[in-house]
């Protein structure tokens, strides 16, 4: 798989480059003067002019891009106009927070979706299958923020089981930053109570975010399993005396997961984008919320950085899918290795 993987990585870098140019262009073509926006309508003209110089907004486009790119080389993403901090510091703070939600959400999506899919395939056309199908449709058509509001009402107000805002409850201290993920950092610091509290804060937003992808994964898994069920190799394996449960969980599941994985990986990458309303509703300081604020304020450096991070997430996910699908489907994996 080695050379194939290298090729994929090279291609991904190219994609990211193109994305950076595109986003750089779009951010600067949108009307409105970022320096003026940052300083407010009453700031004197000379101050605005100074800020524009400082941000190189007076230079031609290619020069701006070159400077920006050179900055990235040293891990310098420029300064945010809104937080007035280096964008890289903002990202370092907000990205891990979003990672926590997205990570848990992805886990729930994958396990829940496959679990439901297998059950409804096993009991296909039973009442269970029917109920799951209806829930799946609901899951697919209902946006994540609606789930967020529903869950918040049910589990936050009616049955206050889960906290509904922020990353930690009052009285808990944020752990010293190692990864930036509170659950992990607290565990590393030997403080399971804080870790548990941080985890509870993740549950509702993560589930709300996972619902759509979970429903989709369940449906795809179910239909590919029921399709494969009538394949001769399943009849053959049954005829040769392999117990039905073993066939279901191994010989039927593995080939059936190929389409699920392909779709789910993109769903997981899309979680980063979908997270913003959920983060907003749960007042959770994550990257997506940061990105939306940046856009509303035309905070150019922040916008570019957030988009690049999202782009990176997509590209990484794509490579991860390829590796995983190659593992599930030797026809692809070995073919890749050979060519």
């Amino acid at each position: 798989m080695g050379s194939d993987l290298l090729k994929r990585i090279g291609l991904s870098i190219f994609v990211l480059f193109s994305l950076s140019i595109l986003i750089f262009l779009i951010a600067r073509v949108v009307p409105g003067d970022p320096a003026r926006l940052a300083l407010g309508p009453r700031a004197p003209e000379w101050a605005v002019e100074n800020l524009r110089k400082e941000m190189h907004l007076d230079k031609p486009f290619y020069a701006q891009y070159g400077l920006w790119l050179a900055g990235i080389g040293h891990g310098d993403l420029g300064k945010s106009l809104v937080t007035r901090r280096p964008v890289s510091a903002d990202i370092r703070e907000f990205l891990p927070a979003t990672f926590e939600i997205v990570g848990l959400s992805a886990l729930i999506m994958a396990l829940g979706g496959i679990f439901l899919g297998v059950l409804s395939a096993k009991y296909s056309n039973s009442w269970f299958d029917g109920v799951t199908r209806i829930i799946s449709y609901l899951g697919i058509v209902t946006p994540a923020f609606v789930w967020a509001i529903i869950f918040m009402l049910i589990f936050g107000y009616v049955f206050p089981i889960f906290p509904i805002t922020g990353r930690l409850s009052p009285g808990f201290e944020a752990p010293t930053t190692i990864t930036g993920m509170f659950t992990l950092d607290s565990l590393l610091a030997g403080d399971p109570r804080t870790a548990w509290d941080a985890f509870l804060h993740l549950v509702l937003p993560a589930i709300a975010l996972a619902m759509g992808g979970l429903a989709q994964a369940a449906r795809i898994t179910r239909s590919s399993m029921t399709d494969n069920m009538s394949k001769d190799y399943i009849a053959a394996e049954t005829a040769y005396g392999i117990p039905p449960r073993r066939i279901l969980m191994k010989y039927l599941l593995k080939p059936s997961l190929i389409p699920t994985v392909s779709v789910m990986a993109l769903d997981i990458a899309a979680l980063f984008g979908n997270a913003f309303l959920v983060e907003l509703i749960f007042n959770y300081p994550g990257l997506s919320r940061y990105g939306i604020e940046a856009m509303l304020n035309k905070d150019l450096n922040a916008i570019s950085a957030v988009i690049m991070v999202l782009g990176l997430a997509f590209v990484t996910m794509n490579i991860a899918i390829d590796i995983l699908v190659g593992y599930l489907d030797p026809r692809i994996g070995l073919a890749g290795r050979r060519n």
Binding site: A239, K254, R331
Partner: peptide
């Protein structure tokens, strides 16, 4: 035991022959 009509369809595409036959023998 049965030999199926279409050998391509009768072999699970994502497992090695060794894995498939070992499973058959062990069960």
């Amino acid at each position: 035991s049965m030999i199926f009509q279409d050998p391509t369809a009768a072999l699970n595409p994502v497992f090695t022959l060794g894995e498939q036959i070992s499973e058959i023998i062990s069960h």
